[in-house]
Nucleic acid binder design. Structure first.
Length: 322
DNA sequence: CGTATTTGACCCGCGC
DNA sequence: GCGCGGGTCAAATACG
């Protein structure tokens, strides 16, 4: 019977209508309780605790009313939580729409920025680096910084035979690892253009300790032209390893700048890729020599950023692994 | 302002 | 002795 009464009252409460009341014994106080509860609800009182001390006293005498009140409290709490959930959901939907719009604008701005800055420096394959790197999707901030840094290097030094070459180009690369290659810290103190070698020879001294007499020459800051690389590979991959100095660097043989090499970077890269691919496929020792050279230059994987002039991106392209 | 890099000048060894 | 080329110095410059 009490259960039926509960159900009836819940329907009245849930429907927003008035209570009314029975005249049976034991339920009169309950009716008064309903009236008190409704007064608080209608007057916009404290929803967390809509019952006064007098109401509690009355409730203590009636366990049925207690159970009903607990149910009502639970309902109020559920209604409030449901409202909050709906509010959060609608706000979530709005934020999702805003985020999607921001993402689209970001992609569009990247494309515009790319076109404005690169201009003629569009990749030879005819698509931009944004498409290559991001695949049209957004990058993380760190990835974007790395990519923009590479772009900066690419723009400042775009390889051999560049029509935009300046009389003096300085490119610095930030690195958290000042010790590169052999674990020592080197400072460049001179540079000399060797006869018959278009690439200047750099001179470094060790700065790990004051007065350290150890010095070394720099290595090529670019991969060998296809012809020279192939010739080096064919002449014996072991030569590259044997030429490693105590400082852990490679002393490659200077190569004459043949007409084909002079056109490196100015011609389409497809032919170069074909040459290198052919060299690799025809002579597996080439891969071994190249791997040894790159490993020696870059050192451990975390030391992939050298402190000297970085390699032009397009020089790396033929050796890309992806 | 301190540090690193650039670059022209200078030094020195070697071959002719 | 002289010229050439490699190695080094140091002022100028760049950069954080």
């Amino acid at each position: 019977m009490a259960a039926l009464l509960h159900q009836h009252r819940e329907e009245d409460y849930g429907g927003g209508g008035g209570g009314g009341g029975g005249g049976r014994r034991g339920e009169i106080e309950e009716v008064d309780f309903f009236a008190a509860s409704r007064r608080r609800c209608d007057s916009g009182g404290d929803r967390e605790d809509p019952f006064s001390d007098s109401d509690v006293k009355i409730g203590l005498q009636l366990t049925t009313a207690d159970r009903w009140r607990e149910g009502e409290e639970e309902k109020v709490r559920m209604r409030r939580l449901r409202g909050e959930l709906e509010t959060a959901s609608s706000e979530n939907r709005r934020l999702k729409v805003v985020l999607e719009q921001v993402s689209r604008d970001y992609i569009a701005l990247l494309s515009i920025q790319r076109q404005a800055r690169h201009g003629r420096c569009v990749d030879a394959q005819g698509y931009t680096e944004i498409d290559q790197v991001t695949g049209g999707l957004g990058l993380s901030e760190q990835q974007e910084q790395i990519r923009l840094g590479e772009e900066k290097s690419h723009l400042l030094d775009d390889g051999f035979g560049s029509a935009h070459r300046r009389s003096r180009v300085s490119v610095k690369v930030r690195s958290d690892a000042p010790m590169v290659g052999d674990g020592c810290q080197w400072r460049k103190y001179g540079q000399k253009v060797a006869k018959g070698n278009p690439c200047p020879r750099a001179y470094y001294r060790c700065t790990m300790a004051a007065g350290c007499p150890v010095r070394k020459q720099g290595h090529h800051n670019h991969p060998l032209p296809a012809g020279a690389a192939a010739a080096l590979a064919l002449s014996g991959a072991g030569a590259a390893e044997e030429s490693l100095s105590s400082a852990g660097e490679i002393q490659r043989q200077p190569f004459p700048l043949t007409p084909a090499a002079a056109e490196w970077g100015s011609e389409t890269k497809s032919s170069t890729v074909d040459i290198v691919t052919e060299a690799i496929t025809s002579n597996p020792r080439f891969t071994e020599a190249l791997t040894a050279a790159i490993t020696s230059i870059l050192g451990t994987p975390q030391d992939t950023v050298a402190t000297e002039t970085p390699l032009p991106r397009q020089c790396f392209t033929p050796f890309a692994t992806n």
